[in-house]
Amino acid sequence: MTTTPVRTSRRTVLRGAAAGAGSLLLPSLARPAFAAEEFPSQTINVVTHAGPGGGTDITTRMMMLRGRREFGQDLVVVNKRGGSGSAALMYTNSQPRDGYTVMTITQSHIFQIIQKKVPLGIDDLVGIARATDDPTVISVNANSKIKTLEDLIAASKDAKGGLKWGTTFAGGADHVGIHNFAKAAGGIPYTIVPFKGGGDIVTNLVGGNVDVALLNYAEGESQFTAGEIRGVASLSEEPIAALEGVPTARDKGIDALASTVRGFAVLSGVPEDRMARLEAGMLKAMKHSVYQNYLTTSGMPLSSVAGREVWNKQIRRIHDESRTALTELGML
């Protein structure tokens, strides 16, 4: 159900100034009234691109559980589905840049900007706080002869067209992650086999229909635990605690990172003090045990929660690496 956002009309304050007796009267200066009012003083609308029950929707609502207390105001989800994030971006672009409209973004929103599906550039997107950073794992069937990253690279070179990688769809975040890893590993060949979602990829990996897949740990947790699939290396900065003995690609000298991220952002133009207030409130809400338990039970690291500096650097890295990858794949 789409929730109608709450918004007061934009007002202006006229300010006159005189420079003493006999001076010229300076023209009145008009500026938005929200520059002086206490923030927040009304409902904050959080725009999502996914329907109720999806990962983005759940992440948003989990933040809001404590966020309402931290801000002393209601937070309302506004669903704007369509275009893999473009509808959400277009809606947000139509609203005042006053801090009362926030987005929950994923890689998909960044891809819409890269592909020029919206009249926005990456500099228009300003991260407020990262909510999830779910690292991916290069995974194989437990019966595979591939046991190490060195084995995988050798097998990729030996197989005609490279190994078959399960992925979601051509040109998506998984495809870009695979491409960037293959390039960092010396340009090894690969073939993608698209499926509808992570569950289908895991099923086909267990069934031996694909050789390898790039999975979030939570997607294959049951199969990892049951010993049906095996992690070869994680594309994360730190090893994944639940996968004991599985190194990072960086540990093996391959500089490749890939994760599924969600976080909160606004469009440029929101006053700095309001962005700082949004950041502080969201970080405090997500560092509460309610949200931390959500991360833990979902198989995501507690380090997922991060502030503007870390989040904006990651947004820029995702943008730059994805734009390069899509260009190399002939998709731009």
Rank of each mutant, 00 (worst) to 15 (best):
I153S: 07
I153T: 11
A155F: 02
K157D: 09
D158A: 15
A159M: 12
K160W: 03
G161K: 09
W165Y: 08
G166E: 05
F169P: 09
F169H: 09
A173V: 15
H175A: 05
G177Y: 03
G177W: 07
I178V: 12
H179P: 13
F181T: 11
A184W: 15
A184S: 06
G186Y: 11
G187E: 10
Y190F: 07
Y190S: 06
V193Q: 06
V193G: 05
G197I: 11
G197W: 01
V202R: 00
V202H: 00
N204W: 04
L205T: 08
G208Q: 10
G208N: 07
G208A: 11
N209Y: 08
V210G: 03
V212A: 00
A213K: 02
A213M: 05
Y217Q: 00
E219F: 09
G220R: 04
S222W: 12
S222F: 09
Q223E: 08
F224E: 02
F224P: 03
T225D: 04
E228D: 13
I229D: 00
I229V: 13
R230C: 09
G231W: 02
V232S: 02
A233H: 05
A233C: 03
L235R: 03
L235S: 06
A242E: 03
A242Y: 07
L243H: 07
E244Q: 15
T248D: 03
A249S: 13
A249T: 14
K252C: 12
K252V: 13
G253E: 01
D255K: 11
A256R: 02
A258Q: 03
A258Y: 06
V261E: 01
G263Y: 04
G263C: 11
